[in-house]
């Protein structure tokens, strides 16, 4: 009798095989996510995963949890409503770099500013993969993409720096090579209250790596291994990514400030006293 893979109960095996390409890193991140859920002994019934659109947006469809596949860029505001209406839920936003930082960029910074208690896992493959490898706000300068056939020249976002400035309480970056560290980071954010953000650098061998002559999935793992340098607490202003340069990974920010729900409650209690009716759980009548 074969032993059951420990993460299997966390996957919708009736939906396999998945849609991702050979060498894609998204599956690795899900493996880490599932292990983090197991290790943190969190009540799985209370976990909800919200995804946007794109390859990483499909994660919601494969995890055996309450899961929401929303519209392009809007995973964060959907998750915000879910969390505010049902504060007992542990709401994970699982999506890609284009979804979260381009079309959803406004929501990203505002959710961080409000410090909504959401855990955001941003799978960054540096491109729009689902649509064929176009440039993203994260694509490093000079990389070739479907819409930058002569190389990009737009400066990219440094996502950790962006979300730190906006107010996130936890920010880490790992690659799909760093499975143990990534799993640990994912466990850590379940303990954080507030807007937490993990950027996972992940290969897209079919589009990004191929176009930029960076080899296949395995070559990318070697690339990650060679180029990564762990610098916990590194100033996020120094962790921007380049096409072939060093990849600074680690936990950059771990701080505390009151989350949206606490601030809301405090303000209403101060202003309204006994007249404030706290909304612990919105039961729909």
């Amino acid at each position: 009798m074969s032993t059951l893979n420990p993460v299997e109960p966390l996957l919708r095996s009736d939906r396999l095989p998945h849609i991702w390409c050979p060498g894609c890193g998204i599956g690795i991140t899900i493996n880490c996510f599932a292990r983090a859920l197991i290790e943190s002994k969190i009540d799985l019934d209370s976990v909800a995963v919200v995804s946007g659109i794109g390859c990483s947006g499909r994660v919601a469809g494969y995890v055996n949890l309450d899961s929401f596949h929303t519209t392009h860029g809007r995973a964060i505001p959907f998750a915000t409503g879910l969390k505010l209406a049902n504060p007992k839920l542990e709401v994970i936003v699982y999506s890609g770099d284009g979804d979260l930082s381009a079309i959803g960029g406004n929501h990203l910074i505002h959710a961080a500013r409000r410090n909504i208690d959401l855990k955001v896992i941003c799978v960054n493959n540096l491109t729009y993969a689902m649509t064929g490898g176009q440039s993203a706000p994260t694509t490093p300068e000079h990389a070739v993409s479907a819409t930058s056939p002569y190389g990009t020249f737009e400066p990219p976002f440094n996502l950790p720096h962006l979300v730190e400035a906006a107010g996130a309480v936890y920010i880490a970056r790992w690659t799909t090579f760093h499975v143990r560290q990534l799993t640990r980071a994912m466990s850590e954010i379940f303990k954080k209250k507030g807007f937490s953000f993990i950027e996972v650098l992940s290969p897209c061998p079919t589009l990004y790596q191929r176009r930029n002559k960076m080899g296949d999935g395995l070559d990318t793992m070697k690339f990650y291994k060679e180029k990564s340098r762990i610098r916990h607490g590194a100033p996020t202003s120094e962790v921007g990514l380049t096409l072939n340069g060093e990849i600074i990974v680690g936990k950059f920010v771990d701080r505390d400030r009151p989350d949206y729900a606490s601030l809301m409650r405090a303000q209403y209690v101060e202003a309204l006293g006994d007249r404030y009716v706290e909304c612990r759980e919105t039961t729909c009548n």
Partner: peptide, 29 residues
């Protein structure tokens, strides 16, 4: 606040029109 519920002013109407749907799935009208 004195009835028991939430109002949130969002960053734009795109957000407003989807945050409410998250709230619906969270159990609210």
């Amino acid at each position: 606040p004195s009835v028991g519920g939430t109002f949130i002013q969002m960053e734009d109407e795109l957000a407003a029109s989807i945050v409410l749907q998250g709230a619906v799935w969270g159990g609210a009208k």
